[in-house]
Design a protein around this nucleic acid. Structure first.
Lengths: 136, 136
DNA sequence: CATTCTGTAATTATTTTTATTACAGTACAA
DNA sequence: TTGTACTGTAATAAAAATAATTACAGAATG
């Protein structure tokens, strides 16, 4: 993952938190983040699927926090946007004739998985409320 | 970083370790990893700059481990290839007129940095020797 | 001095990520 | 009941990042 889904999601959540339960349009969110509104809506779709936010269609619509900020932990947010491993996917197909190449991916995967768990554990120490409090 | 510098470097180091101090050509390494030899040489350049490997030009040349595998810890290897933060760089330029956007990058950076330290600490628990022993 | 390597630059191809365009559908409100 | 302001979503295009390829000078060896 070298895209910016995690920072975008966190940015959205922080803005929604700021809105204190109020409804915010994707246009507005995109303006603050300075990215395309469609990307924001896609990210919101994911956040909604994971229960972090809700959204309302139609005029005056937009999205809002669906949980108390204290109940959204950053590790969960990370997991919701995580697509491949942080350390780079083992998408490579090493030479199966090489005794190392043949089995390296499985060892890399287990190494990555451990390391990523440490990262998630660290993120999980903070909630959205903790993060947002830094902006006061 | 969504490239595969870390897995490539680890693969190289593992193969060199297997060679027990012997010299291995970039062509051979590339063959096992199944990537372009030039990419291998670039990665070796970096590994060399960081003291992990040495290399020998000319006929019969190649590269070799410059340290005992027990003295190469994976956290150091990670740091040597790390270019931007694992969680996605704050390369975005949020709207400076927005009170959140204005300061989010600094908060994201500090969050990332903490989380990445946890990841590095985890990787640092293992040396190349530990990793390579899995292939026996 | 031919051969087999590394080192490195330059270019091209591929893949991934992001932006843009477009439009159907929903809700509100006059 | 109709215009307006949104979301949801697909399709496409643009941009950026990554990897492959080509090319060749220079080093070490036999």
């Amino acid at each position: 993952m070298s895209n910016s889904r995690f920072p975008i999601s966190l940015h959205i959540l922080t803005l929604l938190n700021e809105a204190k339960g109020g409804v915010v349009s994707s246009e507005y969110l995109a303006g603050s983040i300075n990215i395309n509104p469609v990307l924001v809506r896609k990210e919101i779709m994911n956040l909604r699927k994971n229960g972090f936010v809700g959204s309302k269609e139609g005029k005056g619509g937009g999205s809002f926090l669906a949980k108390n900020a204290k109940d959204i932990n950053l590790g969960e947010v990370y997991k919701s946007v995580r697509s491949s491993n942080v350390l780079g996917q083992s998408k490579n197909e090493p030479n199966p004739k090489c005794p190392i190449g043949r089995q390296i991916n499985q060892h890399l995967d287990s190494l990555y998985s451990d390391a990523e768990n440490a990262l998630i554990a660290n993120l999980s120490k903070q909630t959205l409320a903790d993060f947002a409090s830094k902006f006061e």
